[in-house]
Design a protein around this nucleic acid. Structure first.
Length: 589
RNA sequence: GGGGUCGUAGUUAAGCUGGUUAUAACGCCGGCCUGUCACGCCGGAGGCCGCGGGUUCGAGUCCCGUCGACCCCGCCA
């Protein structure tokens, strides 16, 4: 570097620097060559500075300036000058000054780029293959810098609350429960495998037993499941755990954290405390355990009213132990037949076999199913739904799970279509009292809804443990924002007897529990304090803060939907020699 | 595993019910230009229409398969 050290960042220069000799470095953002005078917009991470090459200032620099191209990396030395009136650019922070180039050094050239600067709508294949070019763009710079800022706030908030940041292993043990594990073969122990953590759950509990009182970590987690717009195979959690804690204390801590995150990064005030709702209420009213509270369109229970009606679809669903629920759409009578057909197709995605509808006109019901209901029945349904003239009601009849899923998603779809969603609103909600267990259809057995270390509500365990274990509530909670789960946690079991009892409920034999979680059961027996915690999806939080629908926009090096890294081309084949060392032979499909 | 959208110069897109030489903008290359800032003007190059097969006198366009990116269902304790 012959010109020496950079004296200023491009975006920092102001009229106060006029007259100084400046050595600036960065990329050629744009070149405007007027023959006699050449303008170059010099860009670094702080902003853009206009550099002027004039033959009368320095002929050699001006001559070299002719060869500059987009994204060349250059060093320019010169005197910072004020711009004449009329030449000021109010769009630039540095628009009142310009650098008169006396010396120019080309630090690196650049070939024409596969895609250009700030443009939106570039094919994601290209963005990911040339991620370094994508990262130069303003939006990605802002997203990742905001992410770093958010991480600082998390650390500051938790440090102030007495938390200790501790790292946990990445090479750990497979726990077949939950998501599919990423496995790593052990060379030293041929035929055996580590697993990458789905979360540091057990380690953080062990840290509590280890006397650390309060732990946190901003930690990478791995789950080998199919990807979505907000799901990557490796993602980041804000993971924390506290001793001698009750849920209230965790709610208050996390309320405060979200308030700071939203205030200090994007200037949004989150009203505290964040409201709470039981799981039961969330499912009943919104058909989801992560309800979107930005709009109404709540679900209404109608099973009791229509169970004995002449409409077989409803009556049979009720008779089979299913449900009939409906949503009232104010003003929805204007929906066209085509739109209603589209909504019917929409609920089919979630397994609903159909969607009935009623338009309430001044003349009464306009509906394919009107003829199945007596005037009294129609009246009762209208009363329950508070259906008014000009409204639409949509009905779903099926097993409870299907009805809730279909209508829960349908209310969001209708809200989207009708423009009922305030895109600037941030509606947080805590969802509490989750069930401890759920029935796993595939495995034909009970499984932990949260994870198998979540403490049950003990009265529920005593009352329903033998008869109806699905009724047992857990001391577990989630936090959701605008219908998206941002995190979840629970109070854990700190007594080995209780933990064993829950393992038994899950159909795990004593031997199996011992084999898989023996170290935890043993640790609980040596004076484990009561403890609990929560894990927050850090990537998803950043998505809300920067306002993107794609998790790939908040991760520097994301993977495609097929879990590939298009830049380094991972995953990839490995040498036979590597496999032999690991004692692995491939079975080709 | 399943449903859907998309794939055309370097990039973003247009290309109709199949028809002669596949368009445009930006970018790139060359020339001109001393106050531009999305500089301007003149000229030019640039295409296995993702890949393979089929239908047809003829396919960017229709059909089948395949690969890839994205959205969704299943899955994600």
């Amino acid at each position: 570097m012959t010109l020496g050290l950079r004296s200023h960042h491009c975006g920092d220069l102001r009229t106060t620097h006029v007259g100084q000799t400046v050595l600036a470095m960065g990329w050629v953002d744009r070149r405007r060559d007027h023959g006699g005078v050449i303008f170059v917009d010099l860009r670094d991470h702080t902003g853009v500075l206009q550099v002027v090459f004039k033959p009368e200032v320095n002929a050699e620099a001006h001559g070299l300036g002719d060869s500059l191209r987009h994204e060349f990396v250059i060093a320019v030395q010169g005197r910072l000058a004020p711009r004449e009136e009329g030449n000021v650019n109010p769009k630039l922070a540095t628009g009142e000054v310009e650098l008169l180039a006396e010396r120019l050094e080309v630090l690196n050239t650049a070939r024409p780029l596969p895609f250009a600067g700030e443009e939106e709508g570039v094919d994601e294949r290209l963005r990911m293959k040339y991620r370094y070019l994508d990262l130069r763009r303003g939006p990605m710079q802002r997203n990742l810098r905001l992410r770093a800022h958010a991480a600082r706030i998390v650390r500051s908030h938790l440090d102030a609350a007495g938390f200790c940041e501790i790292e946990t292993p990445v090479l750990t043990r497979s726990t077949p429960e939950g998501a599919r594990d990423y496995l790593v073969p052990s060379r030293v122990n041929p035929g055996q495998f580590y697993a990458l953590p789905q979360s540091p759950q057990l380690f953080k509990q062990i840290l509590m037993i280890g006397g650390f009182d309060r732990y946190y970590q901003i930690v990478r987690c791995f789950r080998d499941e199919d990807l979505r717009g907000n799901r990557q195979p490796e993602f980041t959690q804000v993971d924390l755990e506290l001793t001698f804690v009750e849920p209230e204390e965790i709610f208050a801590l996390i309320d405060g954290l979200f308030a700071r995150l939203f205030r200090e990064t994007i200037g949004v005030e989150v009203p505290l405390p964040i409201p709470r709702m039981t799981y039961q209420e969330a499912m009943d009213r919104f058909g989801s355990d992560a309800p979107d509270m930005r709009f109404g369109l709540e679900l209404v229970q109608l099973t009791d009213l229509v169970a004995r009606s002449g409409f077989k679809v409803f009556a049979q669903a009720a008779a089979a132990g299913g449900q009939v629920r409906a949503i009232r759409v104010p003003g929805g009578a204007q929906f066209s037949r085509k739109e209603l057909d589209e909504l019917t197709e929409f609920v089919a995605i979630y397994g609903a076999k159909g969607m009935a509808w009623v338009k309430r006109l001044d003349s009464g019901w306009q509906s394919p199913i009107a003829k199945f209901f007596s005037a009294a029945e129609q009246n009762a349904i209208e009363q329950r739904l508070e259906l008014r003239e000009g409204d639409l009601a949509v009905f779903c009849a099926d097993a409870e799970k299907v009805v809730l899923d279909a209508l829960g998603n349908l209310r969001k779809e209708i809200a989207r279509r009708s423009g009922l969603i305030d895109e600037r609103a941030f509606k947080f909600v805590w969802v509490t009292d989750f069930p401890l267990l759920e029935y796993d259809e595939q495995e034909q057995r009970l499984a932990a809804k949260h994870h198998p270390f979540t403490a049950p509500v003990v009265e529920d365990l005593e009352r329903h443990g033998a008869s109806d274990p699905l009724k047992i509530r857990a001391r577990a909670y989630d936090i959701a924002l605008n219908g998206v789960e941002l995190g979840g946690g629970s109070i854990r079991m700190h007594k080995p007897e209780l933990q064993q009892r829950v393992f038994r409920l899950l159909g795990m034999s004593e031997q199996e529990a011992e084999r898989r979680f023996g170290f935890l059961l043993e640790a609980l027996g040596y004076g484990a304090p009561p403890h609990g915690g929560i894990a927050l999806g850090f990537d998803r939080i950043i998505m809300f803060l920067v306002g993107t629908a794609s998790i790939r926009d908040v991760i520097a090096f994301p993977k495609t939907q097929k879990a590939a890294d298009l830049m380094v081309q991972a995953p990839a084949d490995v040498d036979d020699r590597q496999l032999r060392e690991l004692g692995i032979r491939l079975r080709r499909p």
